[in-house]
């Protein structure tokens, strides 16, 4: 019962917050609401026994990505922007499509059949701590994607520098 209550709070808040993110006129407000949203999602992850992921969520998403967003928003100085029309004229069409898709996806949920359970039960994970379990799995079976991910980050770093560089005036 308690669990359902917790979940209910998180779900409700997450949905309200995401609506707020999407509908605010001022981008800075949107970023702020998004920050709150990420914290709640991290809480949801904790609820699901994924501590490491929750930590990552806060550190990377809330701490790095949102800060980046905020920097860019502040850099672009979008004051004049605020007077322009922010929501597209065709939003009822988009709303309809989105609603229809939502209905379709939830209708599909009725056919959910649980597959065979894996070995990482809650107790097993808890005994080993989630980080260790995840680390062991990552560095043995999923080492290659891990290395690729580091390469992706390298590309991102270089690319971001190259793209945002001011052109030399020579």
């Amino acid at each position: 019962m308690l669990q359902k209550l917790f979940f209910g709070y998180y779900a409700f808040t997450i949905i309200i917050l995401s609506l707020l993110v999407v509908t605010r006129k001022n981008p800075v407000h949107s970023v702020m609401w998004m920050l709150l949203l990420f914290f709640h999602i991290a809480g949801l992850y904790l609820f699901l026994n994924a501590e490491f992921i929750a930590a990552i969520q806060v550190i990377v998403y809330a701490g790095a990505i949102l800060v980046l967003f905020l920097f860019v928003v502040l850099l672009l100085n979008l004051r004049e922007e605020l007077s322009l029309r922010q929501i597209a004229g065709s939003w009822p069409a988009a709303a309809f499509i989105v609603a229809a898709l939502f209905v379709a996806v939830t209708a599909a949920l009725g056919a959910y059949v649980q597959g065979p359970l894996g070995i990482y039960s809650i107790e097993a994970v808890r005994s080993e701590t989630h980080t260790k379990a995840l680390g062991r799995l990552m560095y043995t079976e999923y080492l290659f994607p891990f290395e690729i991910a580091s390469l992706v980050l390298l590309v991102a770093v270089v690319g971001a520098v190259v793209l945002a560089k001011r052109k030399l005036r020579s």
Binding site: S90, A93, I97, A100, L101, A108
Partner: peptide
């Protein structure tokens, strides 16, 4: 771009609906 995205979303909706 958003027009394109809208049409893509519509496409996805149709496919999902057909599959369902």
């Amino acid at each position: 771009m958003q027009h394109y995205a809208t049409i893509m979303a519509t496409g996805i909706l149709i496919i999902v609906a057909m599959m369902l």
